[in-house]
Simulated scan of single mutants.
Amino acid sequence: MARPAAVSPDQIRTTVLAMLAEAELDPEHAPPTSERFRRVVAVRKLRARLGAGDPAMLSRTLNTIEAEVVRAGLAQVAIPGLPDPIAEQMRALWQAAVAVQLDEVVRLREDATRAAEASDAARRDAELRTEMLRVELADLRAQVTARDSELANLRADCRSLTERAATLNGAAAGLQAERDTVTATLAQTRQSHADEFAAVHTRYEGLSRQLLQETEHQRHALQAERERLAGQVSEARERVAALEGLRDRLLTELAGERDARQHAAAEAAALTTLVSEQRALLQTMQAAQPAQAATHGAASATPGRRRRTSATPSVATPSPAGPVAQARRKAR
């Protein structure tokens, strides 16, 4: 909350004019400029003269009074020895230059204000950063405390592990002694095993020589058996060749017998046909005998009819040789 002003703007204006009059910068003397005004009246001097007041308010009021005094003094500047039109032009030129200078002063003041605001923002950022760093520092302190407690626990664990390591070293020494004993026993066992292996190797060499001899004998026996079997195979092949020749001859004879059997079957069929024809002829002749008897009786009764009957051609008796010849020709 802003503090109330200890002095009023009228008091400030009166005090500033009094300070200018004391320094002979009033309108009756030489016209005041911005540099001379600042040398005579400053915020620090004005606040010391008043005895109180807000520096920011004093600065703003002092800037306003400075602009009024400098412009009023320039308007009343008299240039001796010059005509009035030229003096008027010189005043206008001087006022324009002063106005430009005042604009530059205003711009610089605005730049200073912006710089102050930027510095305030930077200060606030720095304060926020400081606060964040404080929070981080508190976190780091908490972490350091936790690490200290963890380190204490680790040290306790380290002591217990050291004691355990000492115990394990003692056990390792005992195990080392046992290992030495076992190593000596193992060396003795290996030596006995080597001796036994040498004996077994010697026995193996004897058995190997014996096995080679037996294998050689079996090889010779197998060779002789192979030669004997080869001779038997040759004899068997010759026997098979003879049997194959016999089989071919028997097949040829069987084919001849088959042809003869077929010829005999054809002749039997021809004879069967001939017998059938003879039987049919015999039956025909037996049937014709009663008819001939009846014919002879009628002829004795009527001589004229006998003449006519005798004039008819007689039935020819078939010869048995004809069908037999035909059957033989068919069979052939």
Results as ranks from 00 to 15, higher is better:
103 D>H: 09
164 R>G: 06
104 E>Q: 13
146 A>K: 03
162 T>Y: 10
173 A>L: 06
148 D>C: 01
158 C>I: 05
113 T>N: 13
124 R>F: 04
106 V>I: 05
109 R>K: 13
87 A>N: 04
170 G>P: 01
115 A>K: 03
152 A>M: 04
67 A>L: 15
90 M>A: 13
114 R>A: 15
94 W>E: 10
111 D>E: 08
72 A>P: 03
150 E>A: 12
109 R>Y: 08
87 A>Y: 00
158 C>R: 10
159 R>Q: 06
92 A>V: 05
84 D>M: 05
119 S>A: 13
86 I>F: 06
145 T>Q: 10
134 R>S: 10
116 A>D: 10
77 V>A: 10
121 A>T: 11
130 T>I: 05
105 V>I: 09
113 T>V: 03
171 A>H: 15
138 A>L: 09
173 A>C: 02
85 P>G: 08
129 R>P: 01
89 Q>S: 14
118 A>Y: 07
123 R>G: 11
79 I>P: 00
166 A>C: 02
76 Q>I: 11
94 W>D: 14
136 E>N: 06
106 V>K: 11
174 G>S: 14
129 R>V: 02
134 R>G: 10
170 G>Q: 14
131 E>N: 12
146 A>F: 01
141 R>G: 08
122 A>F: 02
169 N>P: 00
93 L>C: 02
169 N>F: 03
144 V>S: 06
148 D>N: 03
88 E>G: 10
88 E>L: 12
105 V>T: 06
161 L>R: 04
137 L>M: 12
111 D>P: 00
71 R>K: 10
